[in-house]
Simulated scan of single mutants.
Amino acid sequence: MLCASLAATPAVAGVEEALTDHILPGYAGFTEEAQALADAAQQDCTAPALRDPWNAAFDAWTEIGDVRMGPSETGALSVAFWPDTRGFTPKTLARMISGEEEAGRDPQAFAEVSIAARGLFALERMLYDEDLSGYEAGSYACTLVQTITADLAAQAGALESGWREGFADVLRSAGEEGNTTYLSEDEALRALYTQILSSLEFTADTRLGRPLGTFERPRPARAEAWRSGRSLRNVVMDAAAAAALAHALADWELPETEAAMARLREVADRVTDPAFQDIDDPSARLRVEIVQQHIRALADAIELEIGLPLGLTPGFNSQDGD
């Protein structure tokens, strides 16, 4: 009876709170920081000048970057094209720079180029890669960076608008006549719950699993955003965002989730290299593996405190793969 009661009552409140307390403010924050980055690039396009505003934009993205539904299901790909398993980003950027392609000077035309040359990870290459970041003001590479940042700001605005003016109402109207996306309130709640667990799974299996590789063959160069030293920062911030969305969905206390997040922060503080470039050392590797275990423990706590009482199981998510 308790499970039936919980499943029947909190769905509408949970969806609304997820939107108003987490998702919509998250996209507004990302839009603000992406625009600040674009404005900064117009003032000074050089790599040292843009690293701080780029990191601020990336921080804002972690708040909502793993919510892959509605306009974000495909729209997020050109904001954060990672993992780039075939190395398309450096190849595309190098080709554009060597050929001084006209699209690199036109933010509107740039929206049609490969996603490998767009977004946060293309900018990371331009701002931190030894082979790309030494460009000077007035160069084609400088103009390209200005174009990428302008394009990123446009993408951020489009995503925010797509949520605020469209998809938010699709979630809010779940179960109402005419809503063919979510035929019941529970479907909308389950879709959001899926985002939480999919985010944590992606962090454990990809953000951490890719650089860990195997004990015999660690792959530190496969870490997310390692050139900028953000690998561990992204892990913790993305996990915190998943936990925050869990709190927004629930109208009750989540002590196990809070404790799991606190333990995750504690073990993350023990990692010796935030870029995971030392994981060929067994002791350093163990510290990262412990972080991975605590990401999974956080997911278990959320399943226990939200999924179990609501009778929810996660559905398909765009980050699940084929």
Rank of each mutant, 00 (worst) to 15 (best):
T203C: 08
Q155D: 12
Q42I: 05
D52F: 04
A239R: 00
R265C: 01
R105M: 12
S199I: 01
C45V: 13
G209K: 05
S198P: 00
E303W: 02
I295T: 03
P274I: 02
D322I: 09
T89F: 03
G99W: 01
I64L: 02
G119S: 12
E266K: 09
L171Y: 06
G138E: 12
E176R: 12
V291D: 03
G75F: 02
A242N: 01
R270Q: 15
P10K: 06
A174Q: 02
T9V: 13
L304H: 11
T85E: 14
R227N: 06
L286T: 09
L120Q: 04
E73S: 11
V113Y: 05
V235R: 06
Q195V: 02
R227M: 14
S114C: 03
W226N: 05
L197E: 01
V67I: 15
V267T: 11
E160V: 01
A4G: 14
S231L: 02
E33A: 13
S78H: 08
V170D: 04
P71H: 07
Q195N: 08
K91D: 13
I23V: 13
A40W: 07
V15M: 09
L298D: 00
S133Y: 04
Q319Y: 10
A76L: 08
D186L: 14
L192A: 01
E258S: 11
Y128H: 15
D280F: 11
R210H: 15
G175T: 09
A241R: 00
L50A: 03
P314I: 10
Y135I: 10
S139F: 05
I306L: 12
P53F: 07
D322S: 12
A174T: 05
T181P: 08
M126I: 09
S184Y: 00
A8D: 15
G178C: 11
E101R: 12
W226Q: 07
L37H: 05
D129C: 10
